[in-house]
Amino acid sequence: MLYIVQTALELGFQYALVAMALFLSYRVLDIADLTTDGCFVLGAAVSVTLAAAGHPILAVPAAMAAGACAGFVTAFLQTKLGVPSILAGIVTNTGLYTVNLMAMGWKSNQALLKQETIFTLFRNTGVGGSWNAILLSGAVTLLAGGLLVLFLGTRLGLSIRATGDNRDMVRASSINPTFTVTVGLCVANALTGLSGAVVGQAQKSADINSGTGIVVIGLACLIIGETIVGRSSMLRGAVAVIVGSILYRLVYALVLYTKVVPVDCLKLVTAVVVALAIAAPTLKSWAAFQARKRKALAARKEVE
């Protein structure tokens, strides 16, 4: 049992960065950024390849920079070239497949054998005992979350938030929405890249298909977290994605352990949960309307 909780915490912290990226792009900027899947693999590929070359620490900022570049491409497509935002993400994502192969030296996976990773380096310091992997993952995620919340309180951060809230107003406040969307997507994809980097080094491997469905899982974490923690402020939003991600991984681990749902069905279950959660407001108002209609019709019948 302890092992399940430990695994859930470790993976939860690591994947929370993807949910955090989606919080920035989907919630704050109001853009469905589908670069995520490919960007996650890009982060892992860059990170693992560099770690294999003996630079595990340098690998982390490099993966973030690579992610930011991917975000820049998506942003450029939608702001400067008029590609619809969802399509822009898909186009970048498709292109990234080749880039990711390239980053791993034209192989579909890259493994670390005896090379150092940030995790082995941290374990060797002896801090945290058997919790060292959780400690490191948690520290990275909390640091990123803290910096993101601070960033969203700066003038640039406020401009990015306003861009997602009322674009007309942003233009009238002498802010260039092209610039704010670009910065926002770069930061979001840097976070996704960071997630890939940490996961890759933790699992000592990067695989070309490891990103499939990451965006939906990230959304699931975002929605689970917001349901529990709320979304009234930026701080709450950042806490929510971490809580949501850990809960998701906990449920995931329990399902794997108890085999309630066959493991092969997990992605389908996740997709259904996400679709239902996003559809919830619409379903709720539809149900309310049907109830009202039934009541009114029944009352009319009584009069007759």
Binding site: R155, L158, S159, R161, A162, D165, N166, D168, M169, V170, A172, S173, S174, I175
Partner: peptide, 20 residues
């Protein structure tokens, strides 16, 4: 509705305008 960002606070809206 066009001149302000609804999900941001009054203070944050003013801060944005002050950017000018």
């Amino acid at each position: 509705m066009r001149g302000t960002a609804p999900h941001m606070t009054i203070e944050e809206n003013l801060a944005l305008a002050y950017l000018r």
